[in-house]
Design a protein around this nucleic acid. Structure first.
Lengths: 336, 336
DNA sequence: GTGCCTTATGTGAGCGCTAACACTACCCCA
DNA sequence: TGGGGTAGTGTTAGCGCTCACATAAGGCAC
């Protein structure tokens, strides 16, 4: 059934060398004569030979596969991250195996990681935006290369993260700069680090401007929760500026404001986070904060590869700064 | 470096049997005494043993991994499909390896498939919504289990697909039933099978009602292209009903109509396709067609597993019917 | 008892590869 | 002239598992 293509010995025979020499060519070892190298490459091409990853994994103890653990790969953020990760990994000759989990408790995460370990992956990227994930990760064997993305900033493990705080600060500041007295915040879940970071940045910006933050409107990333919060905010005449923790929340808020006849941005300004491709086509086009998922993916993969090659752990940390994308949903507050 | 956990021989020694007996227990072979089976299981648990997938893959010629080839896993459809596929596969004890491709030409597809083949995947799911993909697939070795999703309905290979035609027909009919004389269509790319199917369904419904279809407005799935088409449609007073090939196109259309002061649904009704989670929070909430991605994933995986187990190819085919989700973006046409 | 099943278990080979080491040229410098 | 490099190549073992076969123990017919 399986396509049993040519093996290394077949290539070796055709090239008139030993299988070991073929192996050396394949792995870019020095000490192979240029002429031999060419002969081997020709034989590889002629036979359409592809090295057997399983055999290699067996003998080296690890495969050319990177495991990714993520929760909801349907969401825009994780999906983008996963795609970027896959792209980058492919360029480095690695395949990506996904292990999505329903919940981010430590049982689920551990199980997903274990599954990857069973396949002897070369390294693991965990997109672990919540507290409970961290605990699971600390119990893991220390000798497997691991990078967390959007994980706990206070835990000593290799971490790549979007600078949520800076992004939220920029969004809030942008609204203050437009002349708004204060800014309301429809947040993500506060037990998510990105949610918490965005709350923190919002709060910081307000405090720095000498404004005491108004009550938080807690959402759960979904447009539905944004809509619910929006219905409350729409009824409060003093509200002139809203920063939402992501674009989908903003969509829900916009819809609620629209229903209550509150015009955006004439009466109320709104800023989102994520810059989903559709944000430019919301009504009105949404000013938002764009995290660079490609950069995050590149950084985390680089970090992982460094660990894989050096064998050393090391609690590296890298933060990617997001950028503000100004569109039409922000204007000065209505003059009284 | 790698966590060299216990091997099968360690389990065997602890249980006082041969490694082969352990293997038999692991693979559920008959002819193992109940008592022995329990002893082996106990040893496995005690040592925390996990079978080495690489070794198994090496000897059997295939791994417990399913390769998925997809193009843009950031789009809602593919992302949902991938997530559902992963979930289902995990339940069956399979891991999922993603190989996304930038373009859907046959070079890229072949390359992605080859990469999976190198890792000796057990089977491959190709999400191949365009013509050129089909050609690449036909050249593939016949003995590797393969299922295409949203692929060419006219090609004799195992295929699972959403019934695009029926969905589009339902959407169009829904608008006609509301009293509209005709329905305009903002399409997806016509070289995508789902795009083509939705055009076909729209056309069929109109012809069945004795209406000759108005000119097609070609889009490319993006909100941006929906917006451009919407700008044209907004200027045409005779337009009262629009069916868009997906929800993002609808978002762009809604935005354009809004800018031109055309009220939805009072003046113009709009129906989308996909039912993205945000569709209920568009302005107004979007009536749309919901494909069941979970069902597609389950069906394709089932089909793949059947091939893997039986070894037989067989050109099976399964079509998943989508359902219409009625919201507020449809109303009778304005009376004159 | 002999022969021949069936059931439960063990033994040996080998999947395709890499790591470690062995070996052969050949060169350089004393 | 020989000792000791170094570049290029071959040989061997073994990663952890499954497959095919060998073996052992018991049952049942004659």
């Amino acid at each position: 059934m399986a396509v049993h293509g040519p093996a290394m010995t077949d290539v070796a025979r055709l090239a008139g060398v030993s299988h070991q020499t073929v192996s050396r060519v394949l792995n870019g070892h020095p000490n192979v004569r240029e002429q031999t190298r060419l002969r081997v490459r020709a034989a590889i091409a002629e036979l359409g030979y592809r090295p057997n990853g399983a055999a290699r994994a067996l003998v080296t103890g690890r495969s050319q596969v990177i495991g990714v653990v993520a929760q909801n790969t349907t969401l825009y953020g994780p999906a983008s991250l996963l795609a970027a990760l896959e792209q980058t990994a492919a360029e480095e000759g690695f395949a990506v195996s996904v292990g999505s989990v329903r919940d981010l408790d430590h049982r689920s995460i551990s199980a997903a990681v274990e599954r990857h370990l069973a396949h002897r992956v070369a390294g693991i990227v965990v997109i672990a935006p919540v507290e409970s994930a961290g605990e699971a990760l600390e119990r893991l064997p220390k000798d497997v290369p691991l990078v967390t993305v959007d994980g706990d900033p206070h835990r000593p493990m290799p971490l790549v993260t979007v600078d949520q705080v800076a992004g939220a600060r920029a969004a809030t500041q942008h609204l203050l700069d437009a002349g708004h007295r204060t800014v309301w915040h429809v947040s993500g879940p506060s037990d998510w680090f990105d949610g918490a970071g965005r709350i923190e940045g919002w709060r910081e910006a307000l405090l720095a401007a000498g404004v005491s933050p108004p009550p938080l409107m807690p959402g759960d990333w979904s447009a539905a929760s944004g809509y619910r919060c929006g219905q409350m905010l729409a009824r409060m005449p003093e509200v002139t500026a809203i920063f939402t923790a992501n674009d989908h929340l903003a969509l829900g808020v916009l819809r609620a404001l629209h229903e209550f006849g509150r015009r955006v941005p004439a009466e109320i300004s709104v800023v989102g986070f994520d810059d989903v491709p559709e944000a430019a086509y919301f009504i009105p086009p949404l000013t938002t904060v764009r995290p660079d998922f490609d950069a995050v993916a590149r950084a985390s993969l680089q970090m992982l590869l460094t660990q894989i090659e050096s064998g050393s752990g090391g609690a590296l940390r890298q933060t990617i700064a997001p950028t503000l994308v100004a569109r039409d949903s922000v204007a000065p507050p209505p003059s009284r």
